[in-house]
């Protein structure tokens, strides 16, 4: 983050506190939802959405990505593309040539 005035830093501090409380609330919601025993696909989707929202808040505010230089966005976009590749490519081995799921 570039040089900023003390007043701006105090504004940042207020936003950190709001993010902190939001993160704690989202954690409680994640745990609460798990006790609803939703169908597994819905439970996984909901947990992923909440975790992504929490991660987004940490990255945007605590890691200052909300006001970062373009080169960092470029590095992260490339990293994210390869992350998705490494995450999902091996799962293709679960499918046989006929396209059905192998146990």
């Amino acid at each position: 983050m570039d040089a900023v005035s003390p007043e701006e830093i105090r504004k940042h501090v207020r936003s950190y506190v709001v993010v902190f409380v939001t993160l704690l609330c989202l954690t409680l919601i994640t745990v609460g939802v798990s006790y609803l025993h939703l169908a597994r696909p819905a439970a996984i989707a909901l947990a992923l959405v909440i975790a992504t929202a929490k991660a987004g808040l940490v990255a945007a505010f605590f890691m200052h990505l909300i006001s970062e230089k373009r080169v960092i966005y470029g590095v992260l976009a490339l990293t994210f593309a390869f992350f998705l590749l490494v995450l999902f490519l091996p799962s293709l081995t679960l499918f046989s040539n006929s396209g059905s799921l192998v146990g």
Partner: peptide, 17 residues
């Protein structure tokens, strides 16, 4: 913060789902 971020995904993936 990155270490925190990793745990944010580990927690539901390992403990809750």
């Amino acid at each position: 913060h990155f270490v925190d971020l990793v745990w944010i995904f580990l927690f539901p993936a390992l403990y809750l789902l």
